[in-house]
């Protein structure tokens, strides 16, 4: 992939928006937030630090994915760079895939950098107090980050699709954040309504709506397996997380295919 010029152009464009500075800021912010949260927890500092750090990482990856999609796709059409880019002897499919791959490579790099920052922050925090149940920064932690990388794949595919149809960059930001929040929270809301049917009026009505969303969007909360690392146990990990992972991957590939289909038929006026 490194030899594909469009991929290199994609990497260069993302880096030129100040990616390294943004990433350094996120890593510092993540470590700082984790450390602060740990300091406020009397008995579980490492667990709280790790939990807050992982939440911060989900947010940071979402923002990076949106920024990359805006830079590589929305700006391309909005500023008419595409008049030259798409006059090159490369297919539009290759154009989208190469740029998507470039953005995803940087997202993976960001995951690695943030994972490392969080490990350092958690180890630092855990030295101040010995917890009864220690966090597991081994394989469960690695798996947790693998699934964050999968979530990043979905986020980037979603943002790419919006960036390919958007007329303004704000639309990419708002739509991606909106759908991400819904995909992260609808199953929790559904469980809540099922547990306590007095929470809302007409719970059946809400339930139908939320179940419909379940067909349109993947359940991102089901691939959040941070509990395995936080409590060094699989007890609190969502059931069938691996099946949900396949579902997220399928949705992401579907969104990416739609983005390719749209760009392939886009008239550059």
């Amino acid at each position: 992939m490194m030899g594909v010029p469009e991929y290199t152009v994609g990497l260069r464009l993302c880096i030129r928006i100040g990616f390294l500075k943004i990433l350094a800021g996120f890593c510092l912010g993540l470590a700082g937030a984790a450390w602060l949260a740990g300091e406020f927890s009397g008995r579980q500092p490492a667990t709280v630090a790790l939990d807050v750090g992982l939440s911060f990482a989900h947010f940071a990856i979402l923002l990076l994915g949106i920024v990359f999609a805006q830079e590589l796709f929305a700006k391309e059409f909005e500023r008419k760079y595409s008049l030259i880019t798409l006059s090159y002897p490369i297919s539009r499919r290759r154009f989208v895939l190469a740029r998507f791959a470039a953005a995803y490579t940087l997202l993976i790099g960001s995951c690695l950098a943030m994972a490392l920052s969080l490990v350092i922050a958690t180890i630092f925090v855990s030295q101040s107090y010995e917890q009864a149940r220690v966090v597991d920064l081994g394989l469960p932690y690695v798996w947790t980050w693998c699934l964050i990388a999968l979530e990043a794949f979905f986020v980037l595919a979603l943002a790419t699709l919006f960036a390919c149809v958007a007329r303004s960059q704000a639309f990419v930001l708002l739509s991606t954040v909106g759908l991400f929040v819904v995909a992260r929270s609808f199953s929790a809301m559904l469980s809540l309504i099922e547990m306590d049917r007095t929470l809302v009026e007409q719970p059946g009505h809400y339930q139908v709506g939320l179940e419909t969303i379940g067909f349109l969007l993947p359940d991102l909360s089901a691939i959040d397996i941070r509990a395995a690392s936080l409590y060094a146990s699989m007890t609190f990990v969502p059931e069938n997380w691996w099946l949900s992972s396949l579902s997220v991957l399928f949705y992401a590939l579907m969104l990416l295919s739609i983005a390719i289909f749209i760009v392939d038929r886009k008239d550059l006026i």
Binding site: V9, R12, L13, R16, I17, R79, K80, Y81, L83, I84
Partner: peptide
């Protein structure tokens, strides 16, 4: 009025 990548 060519639009070229202004970051390049």
């Amino acid at each position: 009025s060519p639009s070229l990548y202004e970051q390049f």
